[in-house]
Simulated scan of single mutants.
Amino acid sequence: MSQQPDDPQLSGAPSVFAALIFYGAMLGVAWLLGVVWLDLNLLVWPEKLQGATAMHAALGAAVGLGAVVASRLVERYTAWGRNLGDAFAGMLGPMTPGQVQVLALTSGVAEEIFFRGFLQQAFSTAGWAGPYGDWVGLVLASVIFGLIHIGPERDTFRPWTYMALGLGAIFGLMYLYTGSVLAPVIAHITVNYFNLGHISRQALAEGEGLSPEDER
């Protein structure tokens, strides 16, 4: 009997509890170093803040959906994209809708507050950054963001690292443009929500003996 997506006992699926602990710790570090030590506002960059909240949300949703469409095209038309999708399906396995939602929400919020609200702002305003501080912060935060996205099989997951580097730069530019983490947070949640759901369905289809084309 095959397991259904809403089965709470899905072997190999990411642990929601572990994710909450990990991303909670990430937010804790950002708060201690960013707020307590550096006196930063992790949600907005006051000197850069511009535009309405609705505009920030719309920008984030548009960029996120664009990234999702791009990832589907890459998977459909490139061998490395298909290999990457298969590797993620095999590594993460089927997930419940609740798991997908929690993982997308926690990762999107915690990572953007940490990498944009804390790291990018801290690097940009550091005394050594000088007149190019905005770009120093953008580049450093994006590179570190890309480097944490390294999979267990480097050849297979290397494109994921490059894509994370590129998306990190785009998220950083949105942060610079709006002065708020809202746009990158919504973009990040959107990307993770749709991609994790896609990976889960692909893993379930493979477990039932269907081809990737059947799942898509």
Rank of each mutant, 00 (worst) to 15 (best):
M1I: 10
Q3H: 15
Q3K: 13
Q3A: 15
Q4C: 10
D7A: 13
Q9H: 14
Q9D: 15
Q9K: 13
G12R: 06
P14A: 11
S15M: 00
V16Y: 07
L20M: 11
L20A: 04
G24M: 08
A25D: 12
L27E: 05
G28I: 11
L32T: 10
G34W: 00
V36L: 12
V36T: 12
N41T: 09
L43R: 02
L43I: 02
V44N: 08
V44C: 09
W45R: 15
A54Q: 10
H56G: 03
L59G: 10
G60L: 06
G64T: 06
L65M: 15
G66H: 03
A67F: 15
A67L: 14
V69T: 12
L73V: 15
V74I: 14
E75A: 14
R76N: 06
T78K: 09
R82M: 13
L84M: 10
G85P: 02
D86G: 13
A87E: 12
A87G: 11
A87S: 13
F88H: 01
A89E: 05
A89K: 05
G90V: 07
M91D: 12
L92V: 10
G93M: 00
P94F: 11
M95T: 04
M95I: 09
G98M: 06
Q99F: 01
V100F: 12
V102C: 09
A104Q: 10
L105E: 05
T106I: 14
S107M: 01
E111V: 00
I113H: 00
F115Q: 00
A122K: 00
F123I: 05
A126F: 13
G130H: 01
P131G: 06
Y132T: 07
W135A: 00
W135C: 07
V136D: 04
L138N: 03
L138P: 05
G146H: 09
G146P: 08
I150K: 13
P152L: 08
D155T: 14
P159Q: 10
T161V: 13
Y162W: 14
M163R: 05
L165D: 03
G168K: 04
F171H: 04
G172W: 02
Y175P: 12
Y175T: 14
Y177A: 13
V181G: 01
A187D: 03
A187L: 01
T190Q: 03
N192M: 06
F194Y: 15
G197L: 07
H198A: 09
A205K: 10
A205N: 11
G209A: 05
S211V: 03
P212V: 03
E213N: 07
D214N: 01
E215R: 08
E215M: 12
